[in-house]
């Protein structure tokens, strides 16, 4: 449908499954998943740092895999399961836990959250790592986080946070497999 005088056509309604909820949004085709999450769904926990896939601050989990949401078209995410930082704690509680997800708690306890801006993405990358490998070796931790830039910490306290969980092992690591993220 075209409305005279408007520059862009009004798009087809888009259905996005985010944190277990289905949202219907109406956005032009060129909107990215990050833009829809932040500016349409109010899920501002996913951050924008570099505009174009260089920093990882906008990392979300797409079908359980870390994805840079500023380089995913919103429409491409249709039919897939999106998990953002806002979904972690509710997910943990729904699974019978209390408080926040253990990964979030570990980042908090280790001092890994300085300015916090990169940490939604960082936590999700760490969460995905621990979901597939509850006891990662230090070099595996470094490799898994190598697409998330942090400017505050020098990464040391972030490694501490993941090591805390890795030492604790499967008992406190996310109990779900990546597949199970597809709610």
């Amino acid at each position: 449908m075209l409305v005279r005088g408007l520059r862009r056509k009004i798009g087809v309604i888009l259905q996005l499954q985010v944190n277990g909820d289905v949202h219907e949004v109406d956005v032009p085709d060129h909107w990215t998943l990050l833009e829809v999450l932040r500016y349409r769904l109010g899920l501002t926990g996913s951050k924008q740092g570099c505009d174009k896939g260089d920093c990882g601050a906008c990392t979300v989990l797409l079908d359980g895999q870390p994805a840079i949401s500023c380089l995913v078209l919103a429409r491409e995410a249709e039919g897939r399961s999106v998990l953002t930082i806002e979904g972690l704690a509710p997910r943990h509680v729904a699974a019978g836990g209390c408080g926040v997800d253990p990964v979030q708690a570990a980042f908090d306890a280790s001092g890994a959250l300085q300015c916090g801006f990169c940490q939604s993405g960082m936590i999700l990358s760490a969460w995905a790592l621990l979901a597939r490998n509850p006891r990662p070796r230090p070099e595996e931790v470094r490799a898994a986080l190598a697409g998330n830039l942090c400017r505050c910490t020098g990464y040391t306290q972030i490694f501490d946070a993941v090591a805390r969980l890795a030492t604790a092992g499967a008992a406190t690591a996310p109990e779900t497999s990546p597949e199970a993220v597809r709610d």
């Binding site: 501002t44 924008q48 930082i85 972690l88 001092g111 940490q119």
Partner: peptide
Amino acid sequence: QGSTKIDGLAKATGAALYADDLS
């Protein structure tokens, strides 16, 4: 004591609001 930060969990959960999060 090295207590956790006053805004640590807000940041860890995505609840903390930065300038571009406001509208």
